[in-house]
Each structure stands twice: as structure tokens, then as C-alpha cells.
Simulated scan of single mutants.
Amino acid sequence: MRIPQRLIGGAVAAALVTQLTACGTLFWPDRRGQIEGRIDPVVAALDAIGILFYVIPGLIAFGVDFATGAIYLNDGKTAQVSPEKLQPAVGRDGKVDNLKLQAILESELGRSLPLDDPRLIQHKGSVEQLAMYGLKPAA
């Protein structure tokens, strides 16, 4: 009799954990960091199902997906800029000047990117990543 109770408890715990992590963030982590776009109906439906079963975790899932941008569909466009062209935006102390970076990206990509947007997720790099691109750390 004790084993079925553990299985049911484990299933309920797993369902709650998956709802707390948010569907879009869990299933499509590469979408995180998007600021706007079309809403993915699959992610919205999965989050809505979470609201049907567990109201608070479902609302949290929607909030997390909107906050991280994982609920938005990818527009299918990608862009790359060579590291050498980005070097003028990096100061001697290793800090990035957002105004210079924005000007470089706008001239290279032809698009204005909102680098001062508070929803923008910035990732910190490492010395190994710089070496991979053939760059030497200045600091």
C-alpha cells in the first residue's frame, strides 16, 4: 500500500516542479532573452494547461516565460559580427562600452538594437572564450 502512495506523491511533485519552471523556458531555452515577437501558441497552451490544474504555478509559468522571453517565437533571423570588428567597443579594462557596441552593431547589421533595455540578458564571458576567438584579454 505504501508504494502506490509514493508513486502518486512523486507524480504530483514532478508535475508541480515542471509547472514552476515554465514550459517555454524549460523546453526552448535558446529563446530566452527575446524582448518581443509573436507569442508561440504551444508555449501559451502549455502554460494555460498549468493554470487549469494548478492556478498559482500556472501563473508563475506565464510570468517566467514572459519575463525571460521564452514565450516568443524566433523570427528565424540570425546575424554574426566578427570579433575583430567588435574590439573597438571593448575598453582597456575589459569593460564593454554599450554606445560604441550599439553603433558597431547598427552599422554592421543595419538594425538598431536596444542595448539599454532593462529586459536584456547579458552573459559574462571567460578568458577561454576570448582565446577561442583569437582575442587576448586586456585586463
Rank of each mutant, 00 (worst) to 15 (best):
R2N: 12
R2D: 13
R2L: 11
Q5L: 15
Q5F: 15
Q5T: 12
R6N: 08
R6L: 10
I8H: 11
G9V: 06
A11R: 09
A14W: 09
A14S: 13
A14N: 07
A15W: 10
A15I: 01
A15E: 03
L16T: 08
L16E: 13
V17K: 01
T21V: 14
T25Y: 12
T25D: 07
W28K: 02
D30L: 07
G33F: 03
G33R: 03
I35K: 07
I35D: 04
E36P: 01
V43E: 03
A44M: 05
A44I: 02
A45D: 05
D47W: 00
A48V: 06
A48F: 07
G50V: 05
G50F: 00
I51C: 00
L52T: 08
F53A: 05
V55R: 15
V55F: 15
I56N: 06
I56Q: 05
G63A: 11
G63Q: 04
F66L: 04
Y72D: 01
Y72M: 01
L73W: 02
N74V: 09
D75N: 11
K77Y: 04
K77L: 09
A79T: 11
Q80W: 13
P83T: 06
E84G: 03
Q87Y: 08
G91C: 11
R92H: 13
D93Y: 04
G94R: 07
G94T: 10
V96A: 07
N98K: 14
N98C: 06
L99G: 13
Q102R: 15
L105C: 03
E106K: 15
E106T: 15
E106N: 15
E108A: 12
E108T: 10
E108K: 12
L109I: 07
L109D: 07
L109K: 10
L113V: 14
P114W: 08
D116I: 12
D117L: 02
I121T: 06
K124N: 10
G125T: 09
G125N: 06
G125H: 08
Q129I: 15
G134D: 04
P137W: 12
P137Q: 09
A138N: 14
A139I: 14
A139V: 13
